[in-house]
Design a protein around this nucleic acid. Structure first.
Lengths: 263, 263
DNA sequence: CAGTGGTCTAGACCACTTT
DNA sequence: AAGTGGTCTAGACCACTGT
């Protein structure tokens, strides 16, 4: 039970959870813990490594090992009444508005708008030939001092040419409104959520530890005629995010069994 | 680049991705790798530990280190047209059907049906006083020889008393049909998806490595009057799962991301 | 029995920060 | 200069597997 580095990790985990070591405070040095537990420093380091991958501890080189604050979970409404809640100021995007409502400073920063060839994952979702020209809008969604999400949106170049959607500036009034104004009003969307290990550049941009996970969400937006007009990929810090689908209607209106759960 | 245990991990990762070490095959022993890279065995072990938390490698005690097969992603339709796809055999539940469509043998096993007091997370979602009596149905969702999901469903005891829903056998025709037959037909559902580190018993039951992540999905089902009649918690192997919401209708009011809560 | 991965040690050097 | 975490080593013993 209490033997080995796993046992040491368990004891430390308990102490953290019970508040003996409070979030933000420093725990004893590796040498001190080694002496305290009567083991070598390497054994302590193995225990600490476990707690680091669990997100309970973080280290600052040459400074010490700190108890991490529990991650702020941004609950992001993807659908439903909540998603249409009050939005007084039209100059603020949904991300900023939402964060503001929670007392978080939210910013959405457009990092790139570029024309490129659709790679397979994008082409398939837009129902285009691979290599067809598309316009990519890349954005960083900030929550406080961290990037919570990276977003890339692709639209067929033929569709957005000459509209503000192909420009590098923020789209005033929102992307969906602009789409509607140019004749391809969104009709419905499909979303897919999966989790995976963070990779290369995104790990740095999201300030994630090696081995930390991300949530990858793909959304396909179709117009009233069912034509795919936009595909959006969101890569989110998994421990900071939750996605909500509110008030999905089921049962009535001739559609039977619309929700498949795992029964 | 090639220095240190991270560099060794990177070289091995590349070799695995390029097929030099194929899925299911054994890689050289730790001693051999140490000699091959000209480092100590401990350094090799640190590199292997990285690849294990990434899910690329697995170890069998006293047998060797093996390249893991890429995880099978079970795409699980939560909503929409896909969820209404062919379902010829009424005796098969949605889980079995979904698995069959992806060429996997799926089974749903009821592991427990018990009466208990609602703990806070359940009581809040069912809008009950904490401690109110509820009936829990626990199930394991198998995909092949592994458990892909653990599910617990709670319903107010007062609602299901005397119906098949309080029984320990599989509910023929589906839970939703049984609910409708007893006067609380489902009207709409809300779902919330988040990711977190796997814990204690669930890690063993899902055959996960320490530090592996799970997706936790909560669904609240409401009847036509908006009363919460069931809450379902699904804990899924994160690397094996994808959740899909198809054909979500967008009102003219628009639908947008929003941060609605913080914890 | 030898082979394999799991654990542990005592000591070393480094890069970096704080005093 | 002292303290701290990051890396690495050479060697040891264990539990378990397969021959």
């Amino acid at each position: 039970m209490s033997a080995g580095f796993r046992g040491i990790a368990e004891q430390l985990r308990t102490q953290i959870e019970r508040g003996f070591y409070a979030p933000g405070t420093r725990i004893p040095t590796e040498f001190d813990l080694a002496e305290q537990f009567g083991v070598s420093r390497e054994t302590v380091r193995r225990a600490l490594a476990l707690l680091k991958t669990e997100g309970l501890l973080g280290t600052a080189r040459s400074k010490g090992t700190y108890v991490q604050h529990p991650p702020v979970r941004l609950v992001i409404a993807r659908y439903g009444a909540v998603a249409n809640a009050s939005r007084e100021r039209a100059d603020l995007g949904p991300w900023e508005t939402a964060c503001a409502e929670q007392g978080i400073e939210g910013r959405a920063v457009v990092t790139a708008v570029e024309r490129e060839s659709a790679f397979p994952a994008v082409a398939a979702r837009l129902e285009l030939e691979e290599g067809t020209e598309v316009v990519r809008r890349s954005r960083e969604m900030w929550a406080g001092d961290r990037i919570a999400q990276l977003q890339d949106a692709w639209m067929p170049a033929a569709l957005v040419e000459g509209t503000p959607l192909a420009g590098t500036t923020k789209v005033v009034g929102g992307v969906y409104a602009a789409m509607a104004a140019h004749g391809f009003a969104p009709g419905h969307v499909s979303e897919e959520i999966a989790a995976r290990i963070s990779m290369g550049t995104e790990r740095e941009r999201l300030s994630l530890a090696p081995g930390a996970w991300v949530l990858e969400l793909w959304r396909i937006t179709r117009d009233q005629n069912g034509r795919a007009v936009e595909v959006l990929r969101t890569v989110a810090n998994a421990s900071m995010s939750a996605f909500v689908y509110d008030d999905l209607p089921i049962g009535s209106a001739g559609r039977r069994d619309q929700v498949i759960d795992q029964r």
